[in-house]
């Protein structure tokens, strides 16, 4: 269980995240949905320790997030983190040397599923391919928490479908997956639970199947209803 308690972050006078609280259970795919600039990336960067929160805490299975626990969180907040001249295989080797929970066999299998080959140069990949390769890297780690920031952003519909397929087949129920997106409809089918975010405020919405059954509406409709003024 990943427990995010009252996490806040401001940049100068702007509040990026206000008292964010989330409970992420093992084996679940959780969506954090909201428009660009609402604070999603700030939260993910705090989770992967790229940013420090001003206040609040994050704990994994009851233990406060520490440098040692950081190793249990996998995430890519940008896909341009390896030199363009490297091949996918070289990038994976580098990744493996950093993270001993990296499963090379699984990575190769996932690559094959999305028609990428290990000898492709990173610099030659299209945006959609890059997104797929980065995603395959992130979900090939046996981490307790895997965070994916806007995996569907800026990729064409075909690549989107492949990315969704990659997540559904590559997700291991030993971990927890937190996915952000401003594309609510596209991601809905993949989620167990959902949180909405707007202007740095996170709101727990619930179990997606229950919402569909009880509210008889899609998440997109629900989002518009929740934030209707």
């Amino acid at each position: 269980m990943i427990d995010i308690q009252g996490v806040s972050k401001s940049y100068q006078r702007k509040t990026a995240l206000n008292n964010a609280t989330m409970k992420l259970e093992q084996g679940k795919i959780v969506g954090l949905l909201g428009p660009n600039g609402s604070g999603k990336t700030t939260l993910l960067r705090i989770l992967v320790s790229e940013l420090r929160a001003d206040s609040g805490s994050v704990s994994i299975d009851g233990e406060k997030l520490s440098p040692a626990l950081k190793a249990h969180i996998s995430g890519l907040t940008t896909s341009d983190f390896m030199p363009a001249g490297m091949t996918i295989q070289e990038a994976a080797d580098t990744y493996e040397s950093f993270f001993n929970d990296f499963d090379m066999e699984r990575f190769h299998q996932l690559l094959k599923e999305v028609d990428l080959s290990p000898d492709m140069k990173i610099g030659s990949l299209s945006k959609g391919m890059k997104s797929k390769y980065a995603l395959a890297l992130a979900i090939s780690r046996k981490a307790k928490l895997i965070v994916l920031d806007e995996p569907l952003d800026g990729v064409d519909p075909v690549a989107r479908e492949e990315i969704l397929r990659l997540i559904s087949s590559g997700f291991s129920q030993d971990s927890t997956l937190l996915v952000t997106s401003h594309l609510i409809n596209e991601l809905e089918r993949l989620l167990d639970e959902v949180y909405f975010i707007r202007d740095g405020e996170i709101r727990y919405i619930g179990d997606v199947e229950t919402i569909r059954a009880e509210k008889k509406m899609s998440l997109d409709e629900l989002y518009r209803e929740v934030y209707r003024r």
């Binding site: 479908e161 397929r165 087949s169 997700f171 129920q173 089918r189 993949l190 199947e209």
Partner: peptide, 11 residues
């Protein structure tokens, strides 16, 4: 089946 429908294994 999860892969076929691009849904969550829990579903």
């Amino acid at each position: 089946i999860a892969e076929q429908y691009q849904v969550n294994p829990n579903t």
